[in-house]
Amino acid sequence: MIHEIDEALRKVLRGGALPEGTGEVVFEAPTRDWAARRNTPTLNAYLYDIREDVARRERGAYAERDARGVVVRRRQPPRWFRLSYLLTAWTARPEDEHRLLSGALACLLPHEFLPQATVPAALRESEALIPLTVAVPPAESRSLADIWSALGGELKPSLDVVITTPFPVTPVYEVAPPVTEGAVVKVLDRGEDPSSDVRPRMLRRTSGGGQ
């Protein structure tokens, strides 16, 4: 699912900030060696953090039904994860980088959720909305300066892009088909032990009253 969200983010950026043929949208770690090899305008969406959104966690299994409303299987609810991307622009001049980063911000701001056309096929059937935030201050436990230090690079203007996506949980529990034939009604006399071997009594519909 993570790589499918990568492609969804690429489509959004391609749709506004960096159209096809004008540069690259990549997901590589922006290290010094990587930066030295850049020779074309690039937007880099580096996935630096993955963690569960525990506030969205649900308990218990839920039923999946067919077109007739019959339960066909039960599965655990999906778990939601926050994918955090460090979005940076790379060109030959800082002015061009700022222009490219501004275009990315303008492209992402209108979307509170991933556009439906970019949602991975595996999630379209559930019709789940995939939240998207941009430039929201990260949690205190995630310092962007620390990330740049870990990458061995110099601090650079960036946008923090967070996409919260459901992730399917296995296993899936198949449900036995409903009983449609051979059902028997067993009627017990009052006070009779239910565990005793009592023969089923056939229920007949009689005509006329008092029969």
Rank of each mutant, 00 (worst) to 15 (best):
H3F: 12
I5P: 03
E7S: 04
L9C: 04
K11P: 00
R14L: 15
E20Y: 06
G21E: 00
G21H: 00
V25C: 07
V26S: 08
T31G: 09
W34C: 02
A35D: 00
N39H: 09
L43G: 03
L47G: 14
E64M: 15
D66H: 09
G69I: 14
V72K: 13
V72L: 12
R74W: 04
R79Y: 07
R79M: 05
W80D: 02
T88G: 10
A89Q: 01
P94S: 15
R99W: 07
S102M: 05
S102C: 03
A106T: 12
C107T: 15
L108A: 05
L129C: 10
L132N: 01
V134S: 03
V134W: 03
A135I: 05
A135Y: 10
P138A: 06
A139H: 08
A139P: 05
A139V: 03
E140F: 06
R142E: 13
R142Y: 13
L144R: 11
L144Y: 01
S149P: 04
S149Y: 04
G153V: 01
K156V: 04
P157D: 07
L159I: 08
T165P: 01
P166S: 07
F167H: 14
P168D: 02
P171F: 10
V172S: 08
E174I: 13
E174T: 14
P177S: 15
P177V: 10
P177E: 15
E181P: 01
A183T: 09
A183S: 13
V184G: 09
V184Q: 12
K186A: 04
V187K: 13
D189C: 09
P194H: 07
D197R: 12
V198P: 08
R205V: 13
R205I: 10
S207R: 08
Q211L: 06
